[in-house]
């Protein structure tokens, strides 16, 4: 096991340790070592966004990050958003606005939306589309996703149910 890397990371709010090969991506570690299959492998080269996570609060394609690079860092995946009290407002908005069909791009979209709304609480539709352009969706045509993010912004700003 001499060539394995020992990684300690704060993952979805909990301290987690694992061993991985130096060449394994964070995406692979999440899916095949840690059992968190929410982040998806759509391309493995940073072009589709389905593997999106928050790394130290910043939006990152986990297929372009090595597992070893997560050592000492904070990682948030889709599994870290909802809790026993219910869905995160962004998740709830995606349900309400039909912002998904097959659901494969959805974890990445929600994480990307969180990264946006963490920084800009009131983005325009154009800004939403610009921010989310790194997340490919083949099913929806992006309109209900845009509406979901808009609605989520309203939820998070305390504007009530109608976005």
């Amino acid at each position: 096991m001499a060539d394995k890397v020992h990684v300690t990371t704060l993952l979805n709010g909990e301290s987690v340790e694992f061993l991985c090969a130096p060449s394994q991506t964070l995406l692979e570690c999440l899916r095949d070592i840690l059992g968190l299959t929410g982040a998806k492998n759509g391309c493995n080269d940073g072009n589709c966004g389905a593997c999106s996570v928050l790394l130290d609060g910043r939006l990152a394609n986990s297929c372009l990050v090595l597992g070893a690079e997560a050592d000492g860092r904070t990682v948030i995946t889709i599994e870290g958003l909802a809790d026993w009290a219910g869905l995160h407002p962004i998740q709830q908005s995606f349900v309400e606005e039909d912002g998904l069909q097959c659901g494969c791009c959805t974890p990445g979209m929600i994480i990307a939306a969180k990264a946006l709304l963490d920084r800009e609480p009131n983005p325009s539709d154009g800004r939403i589309r610009e921010w989310m352009a790194g997340n490919l969706c083949r099913c929806t045509g992006y309109e209900t996703i845009t509406r979901a993010v808009r609605r989520a912004a309203a939820h998070l700003n305390g504007e009530g149910a109608e976005g």
Partner: peptide
């Protein structure tokens, strides 16, 4: 929708 927005839905991979 629920399973898909929380990342629990099981896809092929």
């Amino acid at each position: 929708a629920f399973e898909k927005v929380v990342g629990k839905a099981v896809f092929g991979p």
